[in-house]
Simulated scan of single mutants.
Amino acid sequence: MPKLEFQQLLDAGVHFGHLKRKWNPAMAPYIFMERNGIHIIDLHKTAVKIDEAAAALKQIAKSGRKILFVATKKQAKEIIADKVGSVNMPYVVERWPGGMLTNFPTIRKAVKKMTSIDRMMNEPSWTSLSKREKLQIGRQRAKMEKTLGSIADLNRLPAAMFVVDVMKEHIAVKEAVRLNIPVFAMVDTNSDPRNVDYLIPANDDASKSIELVVGAMTDAIKDGLAERKVDKDNDAAAAKEKNAAKGAKKGEGRARVKARKEDAEPVEATDSNEATDATAENKE
């Protein structure tokens, strides 16, 4: 997993914070200086935090668990859908459905309903419905797809959540905190980082900044998934080798038993013949 260079962060504008009057004092440790009334983020600390977050996400992906990405702000939607979709992780880029985590069973029911509509559309009975009914069901399906389509594969609560802009996604963060789900987030100078487990001090408004940081996270997830695949393949190969060795051992055991039987048979026959000859001599 290649590390982000200081210059890359600088070129993407990751260092630009908010106006000084909008700052959150809890972000003071990550602010380098103030320039023209705007806080400048310390990119050296950002780089360290990106590496920490990437390493943690890599391990989660390697363990086979899911990471939910949340970014409903306009400049982040396409980036999240593109990059996160490429690693098959769930994401929310439309309105956050309240209770999505704290009331997860209800969300799963809605996803199942969407799946049942899909099944119904492929059944012969679909053709017998009126045009109006088809239109209503189609609209309902499109609405559900918009909000739930990207989390259809999320069968259980995620192992972690990555958020772009904790202020905008405060409801999602609260739900994650309540359920003890680790929160990874891009945190700007106007935000409160205290509910974030892995914070990345960064500009969460510029699309280039978001793309760079999210790209680093998804690259780490790719590496984790690749390592998981290698481990699974190695385990499968080891199991196959073990079974083959067991089979060979059993074969050797059978061969030894067979050989002992074959060695024993001539001896028995010889003893029998000698006994017969001795009886004949005695009779004579």
Rank of each mutant, 00 (worst) to 15 (best):
H44N: 11
E281K: 15
N36M: 10
N243T: 02
K143F: 00
A176C: 04
I137L: 04
A47M: 04
A81K: 11
R119L: 14
A206E: 12
M217G: 06
R119T: 12
S150Y: 04
D205N: 08
L57D: 11
D219C: 06
K74N: 03
T276F: 10
V84G: 05
S125E: 12
D235T: 10
D277A: 12
I41S: 01
K261E: 12
R139M: 08
K222Y: 09
L4W: 08
E252Y: 07
E52Y: 06
P97A: 09
G37Q: 04
T218S: 06
T102V: 02
V70I: 15
I38G: 03
E262G: 07
E241L: 10
E52A: 15
R228Q: 09
D223N: 08
A238R: 12
E262L: 14
A275V: 05
E227N: 09
K20L: 14
K131P: 00
A238T: 12
E52Q: 13
T270D: 09
D11K: 15
K222H: 09
I40L: 02
K229H: 08
P25K: 09
K174A: 12
A159P: 02
K131N: 11
L199H: 15
F104R: 07
W96Q: 00
A185M: 02
A239P: 03
D118H: 14
I31Y: 01
M186Y: 06
T115P: 00
K258D: 13
S86P: 04
V267P: 05
E94D: 13
I200Q: 03
E265S: 06
G98F: 05
I107V: 14
I31N: 03
L148I: 06
T127S: 12
Q140Y: 13
K113Y: 10
G85A: 04
D11E: 10
P124R: 10
S130G: 08
V70N: 05
Q75S: 14
M144G: 04
K77V: 05
A216N: 06
S63F: 12
V230C: 03
S130N: 06
K134H: 11
R139F: 07
Q7A: 15
A269S: 12
A255L: 06
A55I: 04
I41Q: 02
E211R: 06
E262C: 04
P124G: 02
P25L: 01
E145F: 05
K45D: 00
D51F: 08
P193Q: 04
K146R: 14
M114N: 08
V173A: 02
V92Q: 07
P201K: 05
K283F: 10
N273Q: 14
G64I: 06
V177M: 07
K246L: 13
A239L: 11
Q8G: 07
D42W: 02
